[in-house]
Computed example of a mutant assay.
Amino acid sequence: MQARARAVRAQYAALEQERYGREWTPEEIMLGFLGDVGDLAKLVQGKAGVRPRAGLDDALAHELADCLWSVLTLADCYGVDLAAAFDRTMDDLTAHLEGLGHAWPTD
């Protein structure tokens, strides 16, 4: 996924260079991500019946993927090994939950 996200980011960077004379900064990418999260929130409301719309499941899948792309892109901007960070974080969360006295499935 990371390689594909980089390739799409490179295409956007070329378009931004053409349109604006420069690539978007990580801060601008983050602002775009915030807009996507807002769109995702509306779709989640739609799944709860609050904001119904046609094509809801496809739109939700698209927006989740769009948000994931932004996270992958931001991780790349800041040199974060997201796979390693994810594993460490899941290990930490699992240890925390086990410390609460619960045995949870690891799948």
Rank of each mutant, 00 (worst) to 15 (best):
A13N: 14
L93K: 12
V80H: 01
V44W: 00
L72H: 12
M30N: 00
A95L: 09
Q11T: 13
V50H: 02
A7M: 12
D57R: 14
G79W: 11
E16D: 14
E98Y: 05
V8Q: 11
D107T: 05
Y20V: 01
A48F: 01
H96G: 00
A48C: 03
L40C: 06
P52Q: 13
E16P: 01
D66W: 04
A83C: 08
T89N: 09
T106A: 12
V71N: 04
A14R: 14
Q2E: 10
D81P: 04
G32L: 03
V37S: 09
K47Q: 03
G32N: 06
H96A: 07
D58R: 07
T94F: 08
R19N: 14
V80M: 02
Q2M: 12
A83T: 14
A65Q: 08
L100Q: 13
G55Y: 08
D87T: 13
E18H: 10
R88Q: 12
Q45P: 00
R88G: 03
G38V: 06
A48H: 01
Q11V: 14
L40A: 06
Y20L: 13
L72W: 07
L97I: 14
D39Q: 10
W24S: 14
P105M: 00
V37M: 15
L15W: 04
L60T: 06
L34A: 07
D81A: 09
E18D: 15
E63P: 10
L40Q: 01
L15Q: 09
H96T: 02
W69R: 11
R9F: 08
V80W: 00
A83H: 11
D92E: 09
C67M: 06
H102I: 10
D81L: 08
I29D: 05
K42M: 02
K42H: 01
L40I: 05
Q45S: 04
L72Q: 15
Q2A: 14
P52M: 10
D107H: 05
D39M: 08
M30S: 02
G21S: 08
G79H: 12
G21A: 09
W24G: 07
Q2P: 02
L15C: 09
G38K: 02
R88V: 05
E27K: 10
Q45I: 00
G49D: 05
G32C: 02
V71W: 01
A75H: 03
P52T: 11
E16F: 02
V8D: 07
C67H: 05
A13L: 10
K47V: 12
A95M: 06
M1Q: 07
R22I: 05
L93I: 12
Y20E: 09
D107K: 05
A59N: 11
D91N: 04
F33R: 04
